[in-house]
Computed example of a mutant assay.
Amino acid sequence: MDLQLDNVSAGYAGTTVLQDLSLRLAPGRIGCLLGPSGCGKTTALRAIAGFEPISAGRILADAIALSEPGKRLPPERRRMGMVFQDLALMPHLTVTGNIGFGLHRLRRHERDTRIAELLTLVGLNAKAHAYPHELSGGQQQRVALARALAPRPQLVLLDEPFSALDVDMREHLSQEVRRILLHEGTTALLVTHSQLEAFAMADVVGVMRQGHLHQWDSAYNLYHRPVDRFVADFIGEGRLLPGQRNADGSVSTELGTLAATQETVAETAVDVLLRPDDVVHDDASVVTATVMARAFRGAEFLYTLRLDSGREVLSLVPSHHDHAIGSRIGIRLELQHLIAFRREA
């Protein structure tokens, strides 16, 4: 399914929750709406599913309007499957019964064949006759996905599907779900507040805040080419360092002059985004900084470093460079992408 939202707005009781939301998700791609609680991402998902009306714009599937102001195609006619946050498995049905629940229109042989295909795909053949309470959280999640995929929907919607799982299980299962969706060739849209889930599953991610979509892009571009301060701050880690834009587009900072790698803002006074991997530990450097904090991450330390000006930057350093808090270390900048924003007061 080719999903398209054109300037969609929606809300409840006179309060606008979504404002001018536009995006396109190509067939067979996995997208994600990412943002903090209350940003409107679940409302967007429910509007796409047909559970909520929209007050402006259009929602289209394969160029056919599904929702417009005053007009809404019923959810059961949208060729969509949905995995809810609470999974909504039926406790009185086995795994087989839950997966086959939406296949009552098929002949018995066709139904059994489809259930068998999905049991194999999600790795639950051994649990075919188990009930939901006999399954782990991850197994329940896979049953919910298989049930959503069973009728061969054109689009699968996933509403915070891993929120009840621990961090390790989330990462593993999100990669498994991606594999399953790609195997089925199904277009999918996920909503979550977890960057880990978004980046593990999605081909394209939309960062939302207060009902607005700030950027709809690849995870790489969100991290390395954020369009504004909110995306820069929300995605990954980093610090902003004051600088002065020069006539050739380069920017002078207290850590040196940075060559232009993009069209920087027009203002002279700017703030440069520095990611931890932009600040390289170098014992030979004449520029030094004081270690203010450190977080051990196995292969690396994440150091918080204070410059002579009192400003701070972050640096990822191989963990065999074990520096104590208060020590001075040499650093240099190694930027592949110069991202600068207009200086704020």
Rank of each mutant, 00 (worst) to 15 (best):
N7A: 14
G11H: 07
Y12G: 00
A13N: 11
G14D: 13
T15N: 14
T16A: 15
L18T: 02
R29M: 10
I30H: 09
L34P: 01
S37R: 06
G38H: 07
T43H: 07
A49R: 04
I54K: 01
S55E: 15
S55N: 08
A56N: 03
G57C: 09
A61L: 14
A61C: 15
A63I: 01
A63H: 13
L66T: 00
S67F: 10
E76Y: 12
R78I: 06
M80S: 12
V83T: 04
V83I: 14
F84R: 06
D86C: 01
H92P: 02
L93Y: 12
T94I: 05
G97N: 06
L103G: 05
L103F: 11
L103A: 03
R105V: 00
L106T: 00
R108M: 08
R111W: 03
T113W: 09
A116G: 01
L121S: 01
L121Y: 01
V122S: 07
K127Y: 14
H133R: 11
H133C: 00
G137I: 11
V143R: 04
A146W: 08
A146I: 03
A146K: 02
A148I: 07
A148G: 06
P151W: 05
R152S: 11
L155C: 07
L155M: 04
V156D: 10
F162W: 06
A164E: 09
V167T: 12
M169Q: 14
E171I: 08
H172W: 07
L173S: 05
L173H: 09
S174V: 11
S174T: 03
V177T: 12
E184Y: 00
G185V: 10
T186Y: 12
A188S: 13
V191Q: 07
M201Y: 10
M201H: 08
V205P: 07
G211T: 04
L213K: 06
W216S: 05
D217Y: 01
L222C: 02
H224M: 14
R225N: 11
V227R: 15
D228K: 01
V231E: 14
G236H: 12
E237D: 13
R239E: 15
P242L: 14
G243I: 09
R245M: 12
T253Q: 12
E254P: 00
L255T: 03
L255H: 12
Q262K: 01
T264Y: 02
T268D: 14
D271W: 09
V272G: 02
P276C: 11
D282L: 02
S285N: 05
S285W: 11
V287W: 13
T290W: 06
R294I: 00
R294C: 05
G298T: 04
F301Q: 08
Y303K: 02
T304E: 15
S309L: 10
R311H: 13
E312Q: 14
L314V: 03
H320K: 08
D322E: 13
D322S: 10
A324T: 05
A324R: 14
R328T: 05
R328H: 15
G330R: 06
R332L: 08
H337P: 00
I339K: 05
A345H: 09
